[in-house]
């Protein structure tokens, strides 16, 4: 592998890592703050991708489609929290797992009813088409770079939201002591609904922004869900910082695994997870 190929793979690894971070951050936020394990997270990712494909047919513009999709998913996330998830805060993880598993079955089947089982592709918007010349015959697509930049901005935005704003303060207060925050006059059930909706939207947004490079297909949700689980377990559950580091590690491991060990490509990320767990069972940034 010469240096430019290596560089492109590194960029690819980071780009995949950024996308994984977006998905995993939603998962880890919802767990860290609300104590809810959401198996349907991947299904929301898939829904985001399908919505983009569908709305692009009407608007003809990726950005408008994404905007519309975000609105739909934020409302959907809010409704699901109110109608189902909100009954499960005091229950065992087992019930949360099972209920969100039921959601997956419903969403997967609705997806089949609405869009069928075909594979779809979403075109890269023209302003972001083309690539940056790396060497004479290798170029790096601008759209991938765009994804990385957007994800970085969102990561920073998430950090500011949680650590610097009043809403973030209420979220953190609710996470550390629910009853006490309620006694102080914070409407926790509203906060939780917002957080869940935010998590759903993050997952869907990743599916939307990733759709031009990954194509849209049934089952894309469970693929990403499992990888995000690995990311969250590696990084330490509930920690956004951990999700970031975990996503980079898994993004790079997966990219280089595919290039260097094609036969074991699908097993590499799990091997990385196993090694991390041997060393730190609570994940890199997890608290015991």
């Amino acid at each position: 592998m010469d240096f430019s190929t290596f560089l492109i793979q590194v960029l690819n690894g980071f780009q995949y890592g950024f996308l994984l971070f977006l998905v995993a951050s939603g998962l880890t936020l919802v767990f860290g703050i609300m104590g809810i394990i959401n198996l349907a997270h991947g299904a929301f990712y898939m829904l985001g991708a399908y919505l983009t494909y569908w709305l692009i047919g009407y608007t003809g513009n990726l950005f408008l489609a994404i905007l519309g999709g975000i609105l739909i998913m934020a409302v959907l996330g809010y409704l699901i929290e109110r109608l189902a998830i909100s009954y499960l805060y005091d229950r065992d993880h087992l019930h949360q797992v099972l209920l969100t598993y039921g959601l997956i079955l419903i969403i997967d089947d609705l997806q089949k009813i609405l869009w069928g089982t075909d594979f779809y592709s979403v075109p890269v918007p023209e302003i972001l088409a083309g690539g940056i010349q790396m060497t004479e015959n290798q170029e790096y697509p601008i759209y991938r770079l765009f994804i990385s930049v957007v994800c970085m901005i969102l990561a920073a935005g998430l950090y500011v939201l949680i650590n610097k704003t009043k809403l973030g303060m209420m979220i953190r207060a609710g996470a550390s002591n629910r009853e006490m925050s309620q006694a102080l006059g914070i409407d926790i059930s509203k906060i939780f609904a917002i957080v869940f909706s935010l998590g759903v939207t993050l997952a869907a947004f990743s599916g939307m922004i990733g759709s031009p490079i990954s194509s849209v297909f049934p089952g894309m949700g469970s693929e990403i869900l499992i990888v995000s689980f690995v990311v969250v377990v590696v990084g330490g559950i509930g920690s956004v910082k951990g999700a970031f580091v975990g996503a980079m590690i898994i993004g790079l491991a997966d990219t280089f695994g595919t290039v260097l060990l094609p036969e074991f490509a699908s097993v590499v990320v799990y091997a990385v997870m196993a090694i991390v767990l041997l060393w730190r069972p609570q994940g890199l940034f997890g608290q015991t």
Binding site: L98, G102, L105, I106, I113
Partner: peptide, 19 residues
Amino acid sequence: DHWHLFQGIFIILVVLLVP
């Protein structure tokens, strides 16, 4: 043709009503 849809609703109802 949509047993899964029904099954999903059934699972959610069981979790909420007959845990």
